[in-house]
Design a protein around this nucleic acid. Structure first.
Lengths: 333, 333
DNA sequence: TTGTAAGCGTTATCAC
DNA sequence: GTGATAACGCTTACAA
């Protein structure tokens, strides 16, 4: 079923059929009705391919994340998907598998598909490659969760500094001074920012973060477990641990269970990222919460604006975070 | 940068450039090299749009799920994405938002994009609409997790019957006879199959499932909580509960905590679906495990085969499941 | 109000 | 071995 078929069936030309279907131009109600009916009868579904080729707009947006199966990215994807669909865009999904090469490959594929814009949570692509692939071709891009410094048309980031400060502050109130950090990827701004924020939060309290008490450089449960073991094994133990993500915190929980270290008695724990099951863990995790779907949604809105207006002044939005106190920090026991 | 630009730069015709880039036909090594170099210098990225319009193959596959942010679907998506990318396909993601209308809309959009095939976890589309949209247009389709009876070119389903049997059997060994069920959506085969399997498993042991001890018809934590409360409120309490999904089980955990019902002492719990954090819950959840990414992967492989061979004999694959015994069932306490 | 024709960027069929 | 040329299905000036 092509537009030509519909036109023929309705006894009009292809252009008239096109106008009728798209509601453009002035045409007699009669012909319009005839075309609409024909389209309906023939179950005509216009080819986005042909349309896009002609109009140079695909109404498709690329979504690039380090790992779709991670709860955070899955939720962000859901939020973005909803907002994009509302705005008439489709989502082409790419998983960079936490590798810069994967990210570059994903971007290439998206370019080949002539997406109208891209939403990316970078794992650390370099400025040059990004510019060559995206900027230079004028593809609107908004980053989320992790950005490439000044690149792109905007970014939606979590308030990493505030979140870490909340965590350290709370632990400090409990009287802890030897606090360790489970860090995330140093190649992502989210990882770096949280680490930097930790150092800043400690220093602002006159505490010097000890090198041996900071470990981890990947966002995974396994890494959290290994890093926790490393921290616990290195010299005098910390009395509290700040984690840069739930995955990492879950690893800590596991490590402590294996080592027989009681939480929160022997080691208090508080983490960035809340999870819907945090309340049900043993012990319930004290965490910094925010709406992950919202970051996807906001990023999508920014992108849609950027695609529409061409050049929106790079606007960054910071998603607020909250502290949810439960028991792993030592409260309520 | 279009093929014409590359051709001009290399001093050949567009057709020759096309042949050089695609490695088709015989051409002199010299011209081939010249074209390749030109393409490289101009950073040429062929338009999938134009190519697809001409070849009638988009190398794009649609992926339709009830809720991308659910851990299971996110993992299945990841598995499918990887396999499809390997095979040279891209993924267009659609979230049906657990509604039949959403599913229909998603399918329409995918058709408009002329996807080469679709992977769908149906929320209960009716045969007629499915046939009109998909079958009649000859779009290869493989279902996963939940299927539409005989439709499509295959399906990858979990071994629901075996999983539920494992759960009931284990609980029965603990001596339970009053066993309740937290059921999922009756509109999805996964939900129906698990419910039916529960009834069968009970009867095969001479136990008649009581109406009041079976509740729930949506896959959500909230539903699990409400259903658990309902079951616990209706007459004599069951001593054990089988849950059709982790979400539902988490809801049960929450409800019991609120009601002060001890697990597993007052109520044993065992669920379909394992979660990577199941071990860390309070109490650790006894569950039926399987590899969610694998179901996506297998479905993708089936689809790729169906797209390739045109008509592969509808082959169904059943993904095996395992029982992971932890403490919520009463073991090891 | 409606039709004609050109063009979007490829690939495929023919000639040469 | 390589180059015209048509065609994929649509939109959009420009005519009529």
């Amino acid at each position: 079923m092509t537009l030509a078929d519909v036109a023929e069936y309705a006894g009009v030309s292809a252009s008239t059929a096109s106008r009728a279907l798209n509601g453009r131009g002035e045409l007699s109600p009669a012909t319009r009705a005839a075309v609409l009916e024909a389209a309906d009868i023939l179950a005509f579904e216009p080819s986005h391919l042909a349309r896009s080729l002609r109009t140079r707009r695909t109404h498709t947006v690329g979504f690039v994340v380090p790992d779709v199966s991670s709860p955070f990215y899955a939720a962000a994807l859901k939020g973005a998907q909803g907002a994009l669909e509302q705005a008439g865009y489709r989502v082409l999904l790419m998983d960079s598998t936490q590798a810069v090469d994967g990210e570059v490959a994903a971007l290439r594929t998206l370019l080949a598909h002539r997406v109208d814009g891209v939403l990316v949570s970078t794992v650390g692509i370099d400025g040059e490659r990004f510019d060559a692939l995206v900027t230079r071709r004028g593809i609107p891009c908004v980053f989320f969760d992790s950005e490439l410094d000044g690149a792109g048309d905007g970014a939606v980031l979590l308030d990493n500094a505030a979140g870490i400060e909340l965590l350290v502050e709370h632990l400090a109130r409990h009287g802890h001074t030897r606090i360790g950090l489970l860090a995330g990827s140093p190649r992502e701004t989210s990882g770096r920012d949280r680490r930097d924020a930790f150092v800043a939060a400690m220093r602002s309290r006159g505490l010097e973060p000890e090198p041996g008490l900071v470990a981890g450089e990947r966002w995974s449960l396994e890494e959290g477990r290994a890093a926790t073991r490393a921290i616990l094994a290195a010299g005098p133990r910390p009395t509290a641990l700040v984690s840069s993500s739930v995955e990492l915190a879950l690893g800590a929980l596991l490590a402590c269970r294996e080592l027989g270290v009681g939480i929160p008695d022997e080691l208090a724990l508080a983490t960035f990222d809340d999870a819907y099951f945090a309340e049900l863990l043993d012990p319930p995790l004290t965490a910094v919460a925010y709406d992950p779907a919202d970051v996807g949604r906001r990023a999508a809105e920014l992108l849609v604006a950027a695609i529409g207006d061409g050049e929106v002044p790079a606007r960054d939005v910071t998603v607020p975070v909250d502290l949810v106190v439960r028991r792993s920090c030592g409260c309520g026991t």
